[in-house]
Amino acid sequence: MSELEESLYALDWSDCIGVVIITLIIYDYMLQLEKEVTFVWERQMSVMAYLYLVVRYFGIVLAMIFGIWGGLIYMPEAVSYGILVFMQWGLSGYFCLAEVILIWRLYALYNQSRRILYVLLGLFLPVVALYIGMDIFLWSRPSAVSVQEIVVTPNLKYCAASFHIGPMPAIYASIPIICYDIFLVVLAIVVLVKHLKERKELEMKPNTYVVMIVRYHVIYFILNLASQISIVTLWANIPTAERYLVILFKDTAPLIIAPRLIISIWDTHANDNCIHVSTTFEECVCWTSPPALEQPEIDTCV
């Protein structure tokens, strides 16, 4: 394949992936818009509602930039590099926001234990510092990554990122982040095991929300693990098609799943047989009437 053919091949992939990213994000937003109006805009705002709005609309902004960067809309080389840095810093910030949501859920699962909250936040701060350091080292130095303008014809140009170091620094930086996610998953599973044991002794069905939250922790762990792997692979010399498929996953899956995991719990709660919602922790405590007991009990949920 000649150099011209390789450039056209890469440009075709860039444009197609950009269109797919924008289409997926818009389609997902339209699917969830009715529920968003019902569970966010028509109700009193809460901490989780604000977190939802940030991950939803900041995610849409990032996705639009992901889609147009490269070749879909022409940008000068200097502008493209600045936007590339913004995209990577924005994606790291997005992952941090998703971690905050998981921390908030665990805080609810552990009966709003401040000790758990302080431990999680204390361990989370080094993770944030690691994200910042990783973005400075990997994405904010021209000696590590740069943008090259490729001229196919005088009227056909696009920009591509060039990586100047191997994948090992990205691998080393991702290990503590993955370990922190494992810690969150373990805490969630411990709560679930204890909850299932208690419900079995009382001959009651497990709380739907506890099961959902733990399941979502596991889903997010798998998602974040895959995202960290995808970031690492971008630093390796992989074929064009595989590279853009990795980019498609990295630039869409986290931005779609994170807000869905929040709103799906609200949707389940709305269809549940709740007779009282706590005013101190609106989306986290619900009185339900289990068939095995005559008196209602507290079911913790978020």
Rank of each mutant, 00 (worst) to 15 (best):
S2E: 00
L4K: 14
L4W: 13
A10V: 02
L11N: 05
D15H: 09
D15F: 07
I17N: 00
I17T: 01
G18Y: 02
V19E: 05
I22E: 05
I26R: 12
D28F: 09
M30F: 15
E34W: 09
E36M: 05
E36C: 03
V37C: 09
T38L: 08
F39G: 03
F39S: 10
F39Y: 08
W41A: 04
Q44H: 04
M45L: 13
V47F: 14
M48I: 07
M48C: 13
Y50K: 10
L51G: 15
V54D: 08
V54L: 15
R56E: 01
I60S: 14
A63P: 13
G67S: 06
I68W: 13
I68M: 14
L72W: 14
M75R: 05
P76Q: 15
Y81R: 15
I83K: 08
G90W: 01
S92V: 00
G93P: 15
G93F: 15
C96A: 03
V100Y: 13
I101D: 04
L102N: 10
Q112Y: 01
S113E: 00
A129E: 03
L138C: 02
L138P: 02
A144S: 13
E149T: 03
I150Y: 06
V152A: 05
T153P: 09
L156V: 15
H164S: 06
P169A: 07
Y172D: 01
P176D: 00
I178Q: 08
Y180K: 11
D181P: 05
F183Y: 12
F183M: 09
L184C: 07
V185T: 07
V185G: 09
I189H: 10
V190C: 05
V191D: 07
V191S: 08
V193C: 04
K200N: 08
I213N: 11
V214P: 01
V218G: 06
Y220S: 06
I222M: 12
N224I: 09
W235P: 07
T240A: 14
A241V: 00
E242R: 02
Y244N: 05
Y244M: 06
L245I: 12
V246D: 00
L248I: 08
F249G: 10
T252M: 05
T252S: 10
A253C: 03
I256F: 02
I256S: 03
I257K: 00
I262G: 11
A270E: 08
I275C: 14
H276S: 02
S278P: 00
S278R: 13
F281K: 08
V285D: 04
V285E: 11
W287C: 15
P291T: 15
Q295C: 12
E297F: 11
